[in-house]
């Protein structure tokens, strides 16, 4: 088990390093000189040269990369070119908003998707099954920002049940929760379809296995068969999918945070990118990549822990 964990985490570190190199070079190759952007087009050549030197932009690329990694290891993500605040601080401030949004989004999609998939597998070809098929295609194909706009229209403007924008006052737990309902739903809805489909397929397979027939031959209650005997196995591929979903949700969070004006990491990156604020973009993207790189091994370990067959082979 320990070896497996080390192996999985090692792989994540490799992903992280690769993405850092790619991110670093991408920012090097896109047009636009950071010194010019900082100082404006009317700055003198001397000033530009000084800033370039201060930022180390005239060093060879490999040296810059080395510095970049060195700073990362000490937790230094650089400094915001406009406000001079440390990027690590800015990321840390916005990260909780995004994390809680993703958790709520996943919660919504799991709460709707897993029961739908499960039920449509047990009652195959029923009305619910056909309805689930329709919902799956629908939720997969409707972009989250469209859902977000309709949600705002219905629940915030017409019904006035929920607040429109922001994340709520710090300390006001109920208010923050109310601010999470719609963004979370808009974010999670896209994954309802995937989850329902994979749970349905996985349940259909498991329910057809011999051991389910054995459980029936002992007259076990159907609910116990579904929950303890079938879903316990069928949920395993779903956990891996949920980890992939976190990656997807991290990227769709950008739109949702923009629409609902939530001060999350997605909004931070978008705002910084539009102003060519490279260190902030870099820091924000790196953090999201790191989050995703962490999620996969956690999901794999969770699956291994839940499946005694896998657990035993580690």
């Amino acid at each position: 088990m320990l070896f497996y964990a080390i192996q999985r985490i090692g792989l994540s570190i490799l992903i992280l390093v690769t993405s850092m190199v790619m991110l670093f070079s991408a920012l090097k190759f896109i047009p636009g000189d950071p010194a010019t952007i900082m100082l404006g087009s009317r700055a003198s050549a001397e000033m530009r040269a000084r800033i370039t030197q201060e930022l180390g932009l005239d060093d060879p690329v490999i040296v810059q990369l080395g510095h970049f990694f060195g700073r990362l290891l000490t937790g230094d993500l650089g400094t915001d070119m406009w406000s001079q605040r440390p990027v690590a601080q800015m990321v840390m401030d916005s990260l909780p908003y995004t994390l809680v949004l993703i958790v709520v989004g996943l919660g919504w999609s799991a709460m709707i998707g897993i029961p739908l998939g499960c039920y449509s597998a047990i009652r195959r070809n029923s009305f619910i099954d056909k309805f689930t098929g329709l919902v799956s295609v629908g939720t997969i194909s409707i972009p989250s920002f469209v859902v977000a706009i309709y949600l705002i229209l219905i629940f915030a403007i017409w019904l006035r049940w929920l607040p429109v924008v922001g994340a709520g006052e710090p300390g006001d737990f109920a208010g923050q929760a109310r601010h999470l309902v719609m963004p979370g739903f808009a974010l999670g809805l896209g994954w309802v379809g995937y989850l329902a489909r994979i749970v349905r397929a996985s349940m259909l397979e498991v329910m057809g296995e011999n051991h389910i027939r054995t459980a029936r031959a002992y007259g076990l209650p159907e609910l116990q068969i579904v929950r303890a005997y079938a879903l316990r196995i069928a949920i395993l591929p779903t956990i891996t999918l949920l980890a992939v979903a976190i990656g997807g949700l991290l990227s769709s969070a950008v739109f949702v945070e923009a629409i609902f004006a939530r001060p999350g990491i997605g909004k931070l990156i978008v705002d910084a990118a539009s102003m060519r604020n490279f260190p902030v973009v870099q820091g924000g993207v790196l953090t999201t990549v790191a989050l995703f790189a962490l999620t996969m091994p956690i999901a794999d370990l969770l699956v291994a822990w839940l499946d005694p067959r896998v657990r035993a082979t580690l």
Binding site: N210, T214, A217, G219, L220, A228, Y229, I233, R309
Partner: peptide
């Protein structure tokens, strides 16, 4: 009646027991 007054043993022992529940759990369940 099933399992109580009529019990059945199936052909393939490799697939007829639940893979993720322990023997004890399954024997208590029945």
């Amino acid at each position: 009646l099933r399992g109580n007054r009529i019990a059945m043993v199936f052909q393939d022992p490799m697939t007829s027991l639940n893979p993720v529940r322990s023997i004890g759990q399954q024997m208590v369940d029945i």
